[in-house]
Write a protein that binds this DNA or RNA. Structure first.
Length: 291
DNA sequence: TCCCAGGTAGATC
DNA sequence: GATCTACATGGG
C-alpha cells in the first residue's frame, strides 16, 4: 500500500483484498450512494466522502491525507490482513471457497455504534432499499448538513443528543411503523448512557449480547449486527432470513432452526464467524442461493 | 388481493 | 423452553 496526496485528493495504491463495490453493496452499510461504477458517496461519523476505485487506485476526493490515514483507513478496515483470514476459512471449509473467490474484496466496515443500533432496529422485516430511505430521511431531518456532491446534499446521521429529541410520534412520521417505540427506547437508552459504546470495552460476546438486547426491538439478529459492524466482535454471526436459507442450502439440505445454525457457525468458523457470514451473505444473495 | 421483507415482543402451551 | 402471531409500510 502506498499513500500520497495529489491535486487535492488522497490516493492509496495497491490495497489488497479490497473491492469498494463489494464492500458497500453487501448489506452491512446503509449510508452509501452510488454515482456510477466504482464511484460512491459515503456518509459516516459526520463525514462526507466521495471515493472512486479504479484499477489499483483508491481515490479520496477533496480529502486530506491525514483524514485518510487517521480515519478512513480504519473505517474501511484496510490495516487488517484479509489474506490470512481468507486462507484460514478456505482451508477450514471448502464450501466457503466459491463465496470467498467471488466476493474476494469484501471487508468489514467499522461503523458508528449508535447509528448501527438505530439502523438495524429499522431493518427488521424490511427490504434494504427501504431501510436506506428511512435512514436517509432521519439524517435529513435531524442530522447536520455536510456538503454537496454532484448537486446532491448530504446530512450526517444524527448524534446521540439529536436522537434524544426525536419523539415516538416523530419516528412514526418517518414511516417506521411498529418500530417507532423501539427507536424511541433505543434513543433514550443511548442518551442516558444505559447503553454506550464504552460499556463493551471489557465484555465477552455473551454479555454484550445480553446488554444490547435490553433495548426494545433488539433481538439476537440485530444485536449480532451491531456487535459485528460497530463493536469489533468479529466472531458474531448474524442469522437473518438470507443466511438461514443459504446455510440450509449449502450445509444442512433441510429446514434448520436458527439456534442450530448459530451453534454450527460457532464451531465451524470460530473467531472468524463474522467474515464467513459476510462472504456467505454477499455470495448467496447475488446468486440467489436457496431461492 | 396476497405475500414477503437483513425480526422481535408478548401470549400461549 | 419451544412455537405462534401481530406488527406498519412498501413493493412485486
Amino acid at each position: 500500500m502506498r499513500i500520497y496526496f495529489e491535486n487535492g485528493n488522497t490516493i492509496i495504491e495497491n490495497v489488497p483484498d479490497f473491492d469498494l463495490e463489494q464492500t458497500l453493496e453487501c448489506g452491512q452499510c446503509f449510508r452509501f450512494y452510488k454515482q456510477s461504477d466504482h464511484d460512491y458517496v459515503i456518509v459516516a461519523y459526520k463525514r462526507l466522502l466521495h471515493i472512486v476505485q479504479s484499477e489499483n487506485k483508491l481515490i479520496f476526493y477533496d480529502t486530506a491525507i491525514g483524514d485518510v490515514e487517521h480515519f478512513w483507513v480504519d473505517y474501511f478496515d484496510l490495516k487488517r490482513d484479509y489474506g490470512s483470514i481468507k486462507q484460514f476459512l478456505s482451508e477450514n471449509d471448502e464450501i466457503l471457497i466459491p463465496a470467498i473467490n467471488e466476493k474476494w474484496g469484501v471487508r468489514l466496515l467499522n461503523q458508528e455504534f449508535h447509528e448501527m443500533i438505530i439502523s438495524f432496529i429499522i431493518s427488521q422485516n424490511k427490504q434494504i432499499p427501504h431501510i436506506k430511505k428511512i435512514v436517509r430521511d432521519i439524517s435529513e431531518n435531524y442530522g447536520e448538513y455536510l456538503g454537496e456532491v454532484n448537486g446532491e446534499k448530504y446530512y450526517s446521521f444524527p448524534d446521540i443528543d439529536a436522537l434524544s429529541k426525536i419523539t415516538e410520534e416523530d419516528y412514526r412520521k418517518l414511516k417506521t411503523g411498529f418500530r417507532a417505540p423501539y427507536l424511541f427506547d433505543a434513543s433514550q437508552k443511548l442518551y442516558s448512557s444505559e447503553i454506550s459504546e464504552q460499556l463493551f470495552d471489557n465484555l465477552n460476546e455473551d454479555d454484550a449480547l445480553k446488554l444490547l438486547t435490553k433495548v426494545k426491538g433488539v433481538g439476537n439478529k440485530v444485536a449480532n449486527c451491531v456487535m459485528l459492524f460497530s463493536l469489533n466482535y468479529r466472531a458474531s454471526f448474524p442469522i437473518d432470513v438470507w443466511i438461514k436459507r443459504i446455510m440450509e442450502e449449502l450445509y444442512f439440505k433441510e429446514e434448520t432452526d436458527k439456534s442450530i445454525i448459530q451453534k454450527f457457525a460457532k464451531e465451524k468458523y470460530g473467531e472468524y464467524g463474522g467474515y464467513a457470514q459476510q462472504y456467505l451473505f454477499c455470495f448467496g444473495r447475488d446468486n440467489k442461493v436457496g431461492k
